[in-house]
């Protein structure tokens, strides 16, 4: 079966002051199948959100190819993208600013139906009620305004809007980051149910490693706009191959005092995406880098012959990619 989304060598550069260029995304390739959740992790400035926006064509890619349900949408004009968005939806981090404060909740949920379907007012109203119940909002909220709802309720409204047109792909950009723990749990449970019910493909962008681990089937680790590792979720956490993934995973604090931490401290600051260093972008901070890393840009390769697990590091082939253990109190 064809994947819902197929991205090849995607690049996105932004112009910066003085004729310089911000290299936000530098050649990433991945695919998402129906019913699959791809987790995208990385620190600020790693290009997570840019990738999310580019794949649903809120941004125009600089280079590469994006195929949605087999169709090349890389250079589709905006007018042709609009009808396509019935099938590809996005949920943003901040539900307070994602919803028009002057529109009632019921109309907000019905809005995608108004834009993308030929349906009567009463049909849309029925459907909005159904969607509200599906995301576990009481239907009396439909006549309220966004300011009267809590953050968790607003994020449910955003999810109801996203699923209204039965899309094949939903890009979720930090959908739970601004929510409290118990509210966040409810949203994650809802997303898991929706995926099981509808088989929608999801791209889940987050810096919260615990959440990504829980909800994702596969994970893509980004550093400075490049993919450093791409593997099944459990594998990335248990056996991260790329030194950056190792450092990132070691900084994750599971909410369990009995979990043993293996700490790898990274020295130095992340290089500027305006003046990217040659070779491996992580080499300047990498504890296991050798001079060759500064010269040759590593490609994504299968780790130990396992095509499911890919990482971009020269030192994996020599078996020298593990950061040595340091004592941690």
């Amino acid at each position: 079966m064809n994947p819902v989304l197929q991205v090849e060598d995607l690049k996105k550069h932004f112009p910066a002051q003085g004729g310089r260029t911000v290299h936000a995304v530098n050649g990433v390739s991945f695919s998402i199948a129906a019913g699959e959740t791809l987790g995208v992790v990385g620190e600020s400035g790693s290009g997570k959100s840019t990738i999310g926006r580019a794949v649903i064509r809120l941004l125009k890619p600089t280079a590469g190819r994006i195929r949605f349900q087999g169709r090349d949408i890389t250079h589709l004009p905006e007018s042709a993208c609009r009808p396509l968005r019935a099938e590809m939806q996005m949920v943003f981090q901040d539900p307070w600013s994602a919803l028009n404060p002057r529109v009632r909740i019921g109309d907000l949920i019905a809005e995608p139906l108004l834009l993308h379907t030929k349906s009567s007012r009463s049909e849309r109203q029925d459907r909005a009620e159904h969607l509200a119940r599906r995301v576990r909002l009481t239907t009396e909220l439909l006549t309220r305004y966004p300011a009267e709802l809590s953050g968790g309720q607003l994020q449910r409204v955003c999810i109801a809007r996203a699923i209204a047109t039965q899309p094949k792909l939903i890009v979720l950009d930090e959908p739970t980051s601004s929510l409290d723990l118990s509210v966040r749990a409810g949203i994650l449970e809802l997303l898991a149910e929706l995926k099981a019910e509808t088989g929608v493909a999801m791209m889940f962008i987050s810096h919260d490693l615990g959440t990504v681990k829980l909800i994702s089937d596969r994970i893509m680790v980004l550093y400075l706009g490049g993919m450093v590792e791409y593997a099944p979720a459990a594998r990335v956490f248990a056996q991260p191959a790329h030194p950056y993934s190792q450092a990132l995973m070691s900084a994750h604090l599971p909410a369990d005092p009995e979990a043993v931490l293996r700490r790898h401290v990274l020295e130095g600051e992340i290089p500027s995406p305006i003046a990217l260093p040659p070779g491996c972008h992580f080499a300047s901070r990498c504890p296991v880098a050798v001079p060759a890393c500064q010269e040759t840009a590593p490609e994504l390769r299968a780790v130990h012959g396992d095509a499911q697990h890919q990482a971009a590091c020269l030192r994996i082939a020599e078996g020298a990619n593990r950061i040595p253990e340091t004592a941690h109190g």
Partner: peptide
């Protein structure tokens, strides 16, 4: 129980709210 480490998706629902 609502932390990602303890949460079981598809298990009993978490009590959340304002």
């Amino acid at each position: 129980g609502a932390t990602p480490e303890r949460l079981r998706l598809g298990g009993p629902r978490t009590v959340g709210g304002p």
